[in-house]
Design a protein around this nucleic acid. Structure first.
Length: 318
DNA sequence: ATTCCAATGGATTGGCATAT
DNA sequence: ATATGCCAATCCATTGGAAT
């Protein structure tokens, strides 16, 4: 799923598509190597350091890469970002750039510190990402038309990003920001999306009652952190007399080990259901929680397609 | 322990020389 | 003409040591 391709790789693959060869050194990337293993690309005979395309590459590229690459180029050109092969952003960053531009006005109303910005908008890469990658930070500043991020004022800026279609049928509150980066999907299905940064749930306490007329659901990682946040949110809304459900993952095969480089949320000593005796989970959810707990696994929010997820939970028609 | 900074290394670019 | 080779300039990420 995640190809982890940086701009030089994307550029090299495009050159391979257009000219049939490239001398860009892109083979260090595992995904590019997999294309070599699949004989879609290979070394050019007699040419050290040059790759050439093989039969099938063009069709493959057109199906898997060309539309995205064209979108990226259009976006970068429209925003005066050089298409220089020395840029180090990847596809995730590009998606995030587009999101930033879309939300520019909202962001400029109160620009948070670079740490907070990194942690909320580049959520999956962490709070230090922008500081550690000055090239990407300067691209973000360029997109926003700013010289620098405000100083690290500890005052918590509270954001609530909303994707709002004209006449929403239900509201989905997302733990992670991924779904809000593809607003057209939610808009097409008349779903209103909210993103409330990580554990920044306090902001929900001030939501007025008239926003709570629609059915409300929470979409999150199924891990200790995700369920903990759900518990907090559930309480906040319960005090307003409003129920919020949690979306059950449809692809439960997507469960992955709870310990990895990128993931640190482990289940506590006792089963979630015992941690939260008055829980609102249904039978399937209880069963899933105890299975994840037993197997020391979690399910990533992004592994579940939003539309499929809502179908599975019988919130939109199949 | 964390922050800062200069050196280092990996890689591309663009101009020019050279080979086919 | 066109492709390839070479190289200094440039950009970015990483590293390691000094400062706080």
């Amino acid at each position: 799923m995640n190809r982890e391709l940086k701009w030089p790789h994307l550029k090299g693959l495009y050159e391979l598509y257009i000219t049939g060869q490239t001398s860009d050194s892109i083979l260090k990337n595992a995904f590019v190597r997999s294309l070599k293993n699949r004989k879609l690309i290979g070394p050019k005979p007699g040419r050290l350091n040059t790759l050439m395309d093989k039969p099938g590459y063009k069709a493959y590229y057109e199906a898997k890469f060309l539309p995205a690459y064209q979108r990226y180029v259009t976006f970068l050109e429209a925003n005066n970002i050089p298409l220089d092969g020395r840029q180090r952003f990847d596809e995730y960053d590009l998606e995030t750039f587009a999101f930033i531009v879309e939300r520019k006005d909202e962001i400029l109303e109160s620009v948070p510190s670079i740490r907070q910005f990194s942690s909320r908008v580049f959520h999956e890469k962490g709070s230090k990402y922008l500081e550690d990658h000055p090239g990407i930070a300067s691209t973000v500043l360029r997109l926003l038309g700013l010289d620098s991020f405000p100083g690290s004022d500890p005052k918590e800026n509270q954001w609530r990003f909303v994707i709002d279609p004209p006449s929403p049928k239900l509201i989905v509150l997302c733990e992670n920001i991924a779904n809000l980066k593809r607003p057209w999907i939610a808009i097409a299905h008349e779903i209103e999306l909210w993103y409330v940064g990580g554990s920044n749930t306090a902001i929900l306490e001030n939501i007025s009652f008239d926003k709570l007329q629609l059915p409300l659901f929470y979409c999150c990682d199924w891990d200790q952190d995700g369920i903990d946040i759900y518990k907090r949110i559930y309480k906040i809304f319960a005090e307003k007399g409003k129920d919020i459900g949690i979306l059950t993952p449809y692809d439960q095969q997507a469960a992955i080990p709870e310990v990895s480089e990128k993931h640190e949320s482990r289940w506590k000593e006792v089963d979630m259901v015992k941690q939260w005796p008055a829980h609102p989970f249904n039978a399937e959810q209880v069963e899933l929680l105890s299975k994840l707990f037993r197997n020391k696994q979690w399910i990533e929010e992004e592994s579940q397609d939003l539309v499929e997820l809502l179908r599975y939970n019988e919130l939109i028609k199949a």
